[in-house]
Structure formats: C-alpha cells, structure tokens
Computed example of a mutant assay.
Amino acid sequence: MADIRPQGGTAGDGIRTLPFPAELSVGGVGMQVGPMGAGRTWHADDTPLDRVHRIDFHVVMLFDDGPVRHMIDFAEYEATTGELLWIRPGQVHRFSKSNEYRGTVLTMQPGFLPRTTVEATGLYRYDLPPLLRPDAPQLASLRAALSHLQREYEDSAPLPPALHTAVLRHSLTAFLLRLAHLATSSAEAGRRTESTFTLFRDAVERDFATQHSVSAYADALGYSRRTLVRAVRAATGETPKGFIDKRVVLEAKRLLAHTDLPIGRVGAAVGFPDPANFSKFFHLHTGMSPVGFRAELR
C-alpha cells in the first residue's frame, strides 16, 4: 500500500486534505501514472493512508489483483482484478490496512484539462459509481489507452515541455472519455425505470436537507407513492425512504467529519431542528452517536 503526506493541508476537523504532488510528476505536469505497490511514492513525505483523508485531485486505480476493500465517502467498495475505482476531488476515503494494492494508478490535478474536456468526460459527476466493472472488450480498450498514456508520460525527453504536456492532455482525454462512458453505462444499466428514479434522485439531492417525506416527493413529482416505490426499488433495491435516509446520513457524516460544527447545527443542516431527534436518527442508521462517530475519525 502506498504512503503520502500533504504539504500542509489539515482541516480544523483533523482530517488531512492531500494536495496533488506536482513536485513528483515528470516535468512537473498536472498528472501522474504508474504502478501501484509497496514501492510507490505518492508524496515527498510518508504517512499511512489507512486513516480517513480527503484529496483535492482525481485518482483512478485499475487493479491487477484483489480483492481490495477501499472506503469512499463512508461506503466500503471491494475491487478485484480488472476493476477500477475512481475517486474525485473532495471525497473522503481510506486505504485498506490489510490489502495490497497492485495495478496502475492515475492521478490528475484539477485544471490540467480544459473546461470542454472536463464537461465531456464528466469529471465531477459525483452521482456516478466509484467502482467500475468493465467487460472484457471495455477492459482491453481501457488497458491499452492507459498503457499508451503511461508511455507518453514517461517518455518526455524527445519533446519540448509544452509539447509533452499537450500530448499528455490528448492521451489523457482519450482514456477519460472511455472511462466516463463506462461509468455512465454502469449507472444506466442499474436503472430500469430511469426517468422516474432520476427525477426522484435529483429531487432528493436538491431537497434532502429540508424534506424527508416520501409522499411529499411523490406529490411534487406527480407520481403515486406506489409508482415511486416500484421505481426506486428497481433502480436501487431499496425503498424511497431508505434512499432519502441514506443521503441524509451521508451528509451528516460529511459534516461531522469535515467541520467542527456543534452536533445540533449538524442536525439542523440535514433537517433535524431537534438535536435529540437527530441523534436518535443517526444512531438508528449507523449504530453510533454523532459524537462517537466524530471521535472515531480523530
């Protein structure tokens, strides 16, 4: 497993925000690509990654071995040979203490690619799944594109720095377009009632901090409660209420981890003006009190 340390990004909550290690990039460009493993140096200093931290850059890991368990935004994902994990800037994550990471890792600094490419590749689609499972043809194409990108990254000598950077941007764009297509396809494949569920999902994302009622969402979207239940079950395997509660819990966890807000203010921010009700809700869904959850991360 790799080790990295930020150059000075420690939030008030004690969780480090790790900056992109540009000083370790070939030619100082805004990306890196190379093998994972015990010998991988991710930053100038060393610190264990099995503690919760944030990153301010993109990480894509393509695994050659597994399984590996990795926490992203407080959810555990298990990746194995031929699968990928895509972690986006600002997400909380933690490396496994017990698993070895083998394969190829790509890291990319925000701003390295132009805005049109960022939009085309969906770099900030936080609604897309971080764990990607390509089929054999998709995996072959991704491996080929990533291998080509790695060769271009490492072979900087024949080109002037500006031209090398331009070549890297083109190669990186080609890889990310394939990756974005896989991510979008994976999300769509699990949504048999796409339009109904998408409208509900977007409404929850917009209003979860103030609205927790399934009936209210159904009325606002113009569906019966039964139709909404069927759509959400088909897309996610859970009830609309479970989906809403999961989003509320995730936001509460983020606020508890990222900020020093008092527990009552965290509760109010996710729709619980009564601190006691928020604590009961949080304990019901996590098995921990808000205070206990925050203490465990520090």
Results as ranks from 00 to 15, higher is better:
residue 147 S to G: 14
residue 29 V to N: 02
residue 245 D to I: 03
residue 77 Y to E: 06
residue 122 G to E: 14
residue 244 I to C: 10
residue 212 H to T: 08
residue 288 M to C: 09
residue 189 A to R: 15
residue 23 E to G: 07
residue 85 L to W: 04
residue 135 D to H: 14
residue 146 L to Y: 03
residue 28 G to T: 09
residue 198 T to W: 05
residue 269 A to K: 03
residue 240 P to V: 03
residue 250 L to T: 13
residue 291 V to T: 15
residue 46 D to G: 06
residue 94 R to F: 06
residue 89 P to A: 02
residue 88 R to M: 11
residue 206 R to P: 01
residue 268 A to I: 04
residue 15 I to H: 07
residue 232 V to Q: 00
residue 233 R to W: 05
residue 216 A to N: 10
residue 235 A to E: 06
residue 90 G to I: 10
residue 128 L to N: 05
residue 224 S to M: 02
residue 237 G to I: 00
residue 151 R to M: 13
residue 254 R to C: 03
residue 112 F to W: 12
residue 105 V to N: 08
residue 195 S to Y: 11
residue 275 P to Q: 10
residue 224 S to F: 04
residue 190 G to R: 04
residue 51 R to S: 13
residue 98 S to Y: 12
residue 10 T to V: 15
residue 252 A to F: 01
residue 93 H to R: 08
residue 182 L to H: 00
residue 110 P to M: 04
residue 169 R to K: 14
residue 283 H to C: 10
residue 178 R to N: 11
residue 212 H to L: 04
residue 139 L to T: 05
residue 233 R to S: 10
residue 167 V to G: 00
residue 216 A to F: 02
residue 128 L to Y: 14
residue 127 D to E: 15
residue 151 R to H: 13
residue 247 R to W: 07
residue 60 V to Y: 05
residue 57 F to W: 11
residue 289 S to F: 05
residue 113 L to Q: 05
residue 13 D to W: 11
residue 113 L to I: 09
residue 225 R to G: 01
residue 153 Y to Q: 05
residue 142 L to V: 10
residue 275 P to I: 11
